[in-house]
Simulated assay, not measured.
Amino acid sequence: MFEGYGLYAVIALFIIVPLAIYAGMLLSQLKKQTADQIIAEQEKQAALKRHDTKILNSVVIIVRAMKEEQCDISEGCWRLSVLLDSLKLSSELNTLFPSVYGLYEGIKHMPILEERKKLTKPERMRLDFERMKLEADLKSKIQQDVHEIHQYASERLSVIAP
């Protein structure tokens, strides 16, 4: 009566054991992929932190130079805007520091270096006047933004620095 069941048990073992081994292999592969994804994400975050640390250190240097009047307001705002926009772990800083970004927006169309040299003297004077007027209009607000940027950069560095 049980002789037929033995044959079924052997057939079942020939089916179940390979399926169990295959399932174990798939679970092992999934575990490895998950671990690899976690490591890749950690490496990505570490790279972003290194990038932002470098940028924030540059921001602190420019802010100090602006505070000590070793850096022109327009040049400082230009550099700060570009650097702050390149941060990977922060966003929408233009709303936190509107005057710095405002001056940058007002002057970014102006030619620099060789392109500026190609302008006629009246064109350069007109652009200089436009830039100086913007600087004068925004100076006190920019000084406040610069102070806040210094504070922001210092705080972010203390959070993300290893």
Rank of each mutant, 00 (worst) to 15 (best):
F2R: 08
E3W: 15
G4Q: 13
Y5D: 02
V10H: 01
V10N: 01
V10F: 07
V10D: 00
A12K: 14
L13N: 03
F14E: 03
F14N: 08
F14L: 12
I15G: 04
I15D: 02
I16T: 15
A20E: 06
A20C: 14
I21W: 14
I21A: 09
I21C: 15
Y22K: 13
G24H: 07
G24V: 09
M25G: 11
L26D: 05
L30S: 08
K31T: 07
K32D: 01
Q33M: 13
A35P: 01
A35T: 05
Q37N: 14
I38F: 14
Q42S: 05
A46I: 07
A47P: 02
L48S: 15
R50E: 14
R50D: 11
D52E: 03
T53P: 01
T53D: 01
K54V: 12
I55D: 00
L56W: 03
L56H: 03
V59Q: 03
V60G: 01
I62P: 00
A65E: 06
M66I: 11
K67E: 11
K67Y: 11
E68I: 08
E68G: 13
E69Q: 09
Q70R: 14
D72Y: 15
D72H: 15
I73D: 01
S74R: 06
E75A: 05
C77M: 14
W78E: 02
R79V: 12
L80P: 15
V82H: 12
D85I: 00
D85Y: 06
S86C: 08
S86P: 07
S86N: 09
L87D: 14
L87G: 12
N94M: 07
L96H: 10
L96D: 08
P98F: 13
P98Y: 12
S99E: 06
V100F: 08
Y101S: 10
L103G: 04
Y104K: 11
E105R: 15
E105I: 11
G106I: 10
K108H: 13
K108C: 06
H109C: 11
M110G: 10
P111Y: 10
P111N: 05
L113Q: 15
E114R: 05
R116C: 05
R116M: 08
K118P: 06
K121G: 01
P122C: 02
P122H: 02
P122E: 00
E123V: 14
E123Q: 15
R126L: 05
D128P: 09
E130S: 15
E130L: 12
R131F: 02
M132P: 00
L134Q: 11
E135K: 14
E135D: 05
E135R: 11
A136E: 09
A136N: 12
K139G: 01
I142D: 00
Q143A: 07
Q144T: 10
D145M: 06
V146F: 04
V146K: 00
H147N: 06
E148P: 00
H150L: 02
Y152F: 15
A153G: 03
A153H: 00
A153E: 03
S154I: 04
R156W: 02
L157D: 10
V159L: 07
V159Y: 05
I160H: 01
A161S: 09
